[in-house]
Design a protein around this nucleic acid. Structure first.
Lengths: 316, 316
DNA sequence: CCATTTACTTGACTGAGTCAATTATCGGCA
DNA sequence: TGCCGATAATTGACTCAGTCAAGTAAATGG
C-alpha cells in the first residue's frame, strides 16, 4: 500500500469505522450473491478468478497469481497443474529465471473462460439494469472513488497542480467560499453573492495581458484559487485567495500568493494590494510572510457580522 | 431487491459493467485481506459473521441467519449447535411457532465476540488511518452511495424535493449551468459569468415579498433550480430554469415552472415573462405547455455563439 | 563458491460448506 | 377434524477448496 501524506494521528471517527465495517459486511454478501450464479460452472470461484487473470494479463507467473489473488502458493501450483492437465494453459520456462514460467491460456483455455466471463458480465449487467442510467454513473463513480482511495495508487500522488480558470471553476469557488465562511465564521449568503459578483466581473472584463487566475487542483478537484486583477496601471490587486481545509498544510496558499507576486512583478506593476478581514488569520500569516504590510484597518458591517477590514500592500 | 424507477431497456454500457466487475474483483481481494487478520481467532470467518449478527440484532431465528448471510440451512444448524455446546448462545423455542427458536448470545457469547469485534474495528481503523480526514469522508460517502444504490432501499426514494436557496447553491448552479451549456452547446466562459452575475444580483437585492427561488434536490444533491424576480410591479420574470441531465424525465422542469406561475399569480403579478434561446428546446417545450406565448425573437451574439434570443410571456 | 533467498512443487491434512433425507410443526382447506 | 403441502430445523455423508510444512531447484549476494 502507498504511503499517503499526512496520516492522521488521532484515531478515525467511530462512525466512519462503523460505516466502513457495515459496507464490508454488505459487500461480502453482495459478492456472495454474484458468485452464487457462477457456481454451477465446472470451475470453482477461485479457478474462475485465476482464469480471469490469465485471460486479461500476459506473461504472468505463478507467484503473480498467488500474490494478486491472495492465494496460497501450493494451491496455485495445484490449480495450474490441473489447468495444464486439461490443456487450458501452457507454461514456458523463462530464460531469465528457470524457476519461473510464463503462463498463457491456450485456445481451449480461452474457450473455457468465455462462458464464465459472459455469465459474470451478464450478471453485472442485470444488476446495473435495475438502476436508471444516471444512477449507474453514480454507482460506478463511487466505486472508482473507493477503489482509488483504498487501492495503491499506481503513480505517486501529485500534491497539487496549478492551472488557469476553466468553465465550472467560478461556480465551484463561489460555492466553496460561501459554504466555508458560513460554516467557520457564520457569514450570511451575501458573501457568496459577493464572490459570485467578483468572479463574474473578473471573467467579463478579463484582460490576459494584465490579469491572471490560478486554480490549485488535486486529484481533479479544485482545492484552492487566487486572482490578480488590474486596479490601475501601477497597482495590481490580489483577490479571493482560498485553500480547501482538506488541502491545507501543503503550502498551496503560500504558492498561490507567490505566483501572484511573480506575475505582478513580471508585468511591471509597482505594487500589489489586497483587502481581507482580520479574522482570517491563516491568510494574514501568508501575506505577512510574503512581505505584505498592513496599511489600513477599518471596521465594517458585512455578511451579517461586524468585521474589521484590512488593506495590505506589497511594494514590488 | 427493490423495484426501482425507470429501469433501463437497453443494456448498460460495457464500460460501466467492466468498471463494476473490476470493483468486485478489487473488493473481493480487499475483504480477503481484512479477513486474513481475523483468521487467527478461534472462530471461522462465517462463525464471526454469525456472532456479529447475533450481537447486533435481537430475536433472530436460524432461518434469518441463513438468509441474511447467505448460508446453507444445514450449516447454520451445525454452527448454532457448536455455539450452544460452547454455551455462547441460548435458544428458546418461540411460542408462536414451535419449529423456530429465538437465538441470543449469552454473556459468554458476548465475551467471546468482544475481541473479534475489537480486532475487526481496529483493522478498519488502521485502514482509515492511512488516509487524511477529508479522504476518509470521501471514502465513506462513496461506500454509502454504493450501498444505497445496490442495497434495497428501506423507504421508497423521494424523487425530488423543492426548497429555497441556501448558501452554496448559487455557486453550484453557476458551475453546473456553465459546464452544461459549454458541453452541450459550446458556449464560452462568459455564460457562467452571466449566471454568477444574475445570481449575485438576485441574492443582493432579494425581496422575499416579491421574489423567490426553488431548488430541486435529490438525495442531497441539487438537480434543478429556478428563480422569480420582480421586473416591475406588474411583471415578474422567470430566470435560470435548469434541470440536471441525470434528473430529467421526472417532471422537475415542469414542476419548477408551475411553482413560478403559482407564486406570480399569488403575488398579484399581471404577467410572467422570461428570456431564453431557441436552441434550448427542452425548456421551450415546458414553457409552451405551461401556456407561455412567444412574443419576440432576436438574433444576438453571446457566449461565443450566434444565437436567437426569445422572449416568452404568460398572462396571469 | 557458499549461504540465503526465492519460485515452485508435493504430501498430508482439515474443516468449511453442500446435498439430500428426515422429523417436527404450521397454515390452509375440505 | 384430519389431511396435505410448505416451512424450520436437524442430521448423515460427503467433497473439495484451501492450509501447512517439507523439499527441490534455481538465483542472488557477499
Amino acid at each position: 500500500m502507498t504511503i499517503h501524506h499526512q496520516p492522521n494521528n488521532d484515531a478515525p471517527n467511530k462512525q466512519l469505522i462503523d460505516a466502513v465495517r457495515a459496507f464490508n459486511r454488505f459487500y461480502t454478501r453482495q459478492i456472495g450473491l454474484l458468485d452464487e450464479g457462477l457456481l454451477k460452472s465446472a470451475f470453482s470461484l477461485t479457478e474462475a478468478r485465476v482464469l480471469y487473470e490469465l485471460a486479461h494479463r500476459d506473461g504472468l507467473i505463478a507467484t503473480d497469481l498467488g500474490r494478486d489473488l491472495g492465494l496460497d502458493a501450493g494451491y496455485v501450483s495445484r490449480l495450474l497443474k490441473k489447468f495444464e492437465r486439461l490443456h487450458l494453459i501452457s507454461r514456458s520456462t523463462l530464460v531469465s529465471d528457470a524457476r519461473q514460467s510464463s503462463i498463457a491460456l491456450t485456445q481451449a483455455g480461452r474457450n473455457a473462460f468465455a462462458p464464465l466471463n459472459r455469465d459474470s458480465h451478464d450478471q453485472v449487467a442485470a444488476l446495473l439494469d435495475r438502476l436508471p442510467a444516471s444512477e449507474q454513473d453514480r454507482l460506478v463513480k463511487s466505486m472508482r472513488t473507493v477503489q482509488a482511495l483504498l487501492g495503491e495508487s499506481a503513480e505517486p500522488r501529485i500534491p497539487y497542480l496549478l492551472r488557469p480558470l476553466q468553465v465550472g471553476d467560478i461556480g465551484w469557488i463561489t460555492r466553496r467560499q460561501g459554504m466555508l465562511y458560513t460554516q467557520d465564521y457564520g457569514w450570511d449568503e451575501t458573501y457568496e453573492a459577493l464572490v459570485a459578483e467578483i468572479l463574474a466581473a473578473f471573467v467579463k472584463s478579463f484582460d490576459p495581458k494584465w490579469e491572471r487566475s490560478w486554480i490549485a487542483e488535486r486529484d481533479g478537484e479544485v482545492v484552492g484559487s487566487v486572482f490578480v486583477v488590474r486596479k490601475s496601471p501601477e497597482v495590481a490587486k490580489l483577490r479571493l485567495l482560498y485553500v480547501e481545509p482538506s488541502a491545507r498544510g501543503l503550502g498551496i496558499g503560500k504558492r498561490l500568493v507567490e505566483e501572484c507576486i511573480g506575475f505582478a512583478r513580471a508585468k511591471g506593476y509597482k505594487s500589489l494590494t489586497l483587502w481581507t478581514n482580520d479574522i482570517l488569520t491563516a491568510a494574514r500569516h501568508i501575506y505577512q510572510v510574503a512581505g505584505f504590510k498592513l496599511i489600513e484597518e477599518e471596521p465594517h458591517h458585512s455578511f451579517g457580522k461586524d468585521l474589521v477590514g484590512q488593506t495590505w500592500d506589497l511594494d514590488l
